[in-house]
């Protein structure tokens, strides 16, 4: 079995008006199926990219993967364990959560502005009880900062003292701090400029090689995943409409929707 498996993953949002309004107006319930029976699997140490336009359900899948949202139906399985098994004890759940971390799109919104960088990065270490003792925690934070290309002295600074790209490095260090096996990246470079984007993408790739990390990489930009996706899944209105290797997808897209995405992506190639 693959390392990460999404099985019939589904998420509904209830967009209905309040019951009392519905009773008075006789209007039916309105349910939006944001993610509709999505299946995919990811091999250990590889990158699976989910590509789609806004509202296609990408972020909803990301949130379900890291436990921020519950699926309405279906489940996610990691390393043979059902993440959504209601029978899981609290400590078993926690143990699984440690193994999947997330890097968010906005390095501005996802870092608490009032915390020092060192505390932000140490938070998962403390929450999961990974390392005891302030000194040892501090050493680990220094090591993580250096791994993502920052200085250990940066631990004392606040997020606003860093540029967008550096903040995204901090987010990555934080995600790494619980020693996860899977990282969900939701548009991690969309807010960054190309020159900085390249730095962050290269860093993610180097870390993947070093730690055999498995990535679920979410993006609206096909070019961004061209260097790192082993497989690309195309999401349209909550449904996975096509799945291929980048080579296959770029040269022989099967679905009209995929062709449209490829054709409308602005390209720097003059042809």
């Amino acid at each position: 079995m693959s390392f990460v498996v999404a099985k019939g993953l589904t998420r509904n949002y209830d967009l209905s008006e309040p019951l009392i309004v519905r009773a008075l107006t006789m209007r039916p319930k309105r349910i939006l199926t944001a993610v509709d029976n999505v299946n995919f699997s990811i091999e250990k140490g590889t990158t699976y990219a989910l590509v789609g336009e806004s509202g296609s359900g990408k972020s909803t899948i990301a949130k379900m993967a890291v436990g921020l949202l519950k699926p309405s139906a279906g489940t996610l399985i990691m390393d043979g364990k059902n993440l959504n098994d209601p029978a899981l004890a609290r400590n078993e759940q926690l143990a699984l959560r440690r193994r999947i971390q997330m890097v968010f799109q906005s390095p501005y919104a996802s870092l608490n502005p009032r915390w020092r960088v060192g505390d932000i990065i140490a938070e998962p270490i403390k929450a999961f009880g990974l390392i005891d003792g302030t000194k040892a925690q501090f050493m680990r934070v220094s090591e993580l900062l250096e791994q993502v290309g920052l200085a250990s002295s940066d631990a004392n600074k606040y997020p606003h003292e860093f540029s967008g790209g550096q903040r995204q490095r901090i987010s990555i260090a934080r995600a790494l701090s619980s020693q996860p096996e899977v990282i969900v990246c939701d548009e991690p470079t969309s807010a960054l400029d190309v020159s900085v984007q390249a730095q962050v993408l290269n860093l993610l790739k180097a870390l993947q090689k070093e730690y055999a990390l498995t990535y679920l990489f979410i993006t609206h930009d096909l070019a961004v995943v061209s260097t790192m996706a082993n497989k690309i899944g195309v999401l349209n209105k909550g449904k996975l409409v096509e799945e291929q290797s980048p080579t296959g997808l770029f040269s022989r897209p099967q679905q009209d929707y995929t062709k449209m995405l490829l054709n409308s992506a602005p390209s720097i190639n003059f042809g």
Binding site: S226, T247, F250, A265
Partner: peptide, 9 residues
Amino acid sequence: TPRIDASSF
């Protein structure tokens, strides 16, 4: 700038 190109992988 990343490019949509099968050989980028």
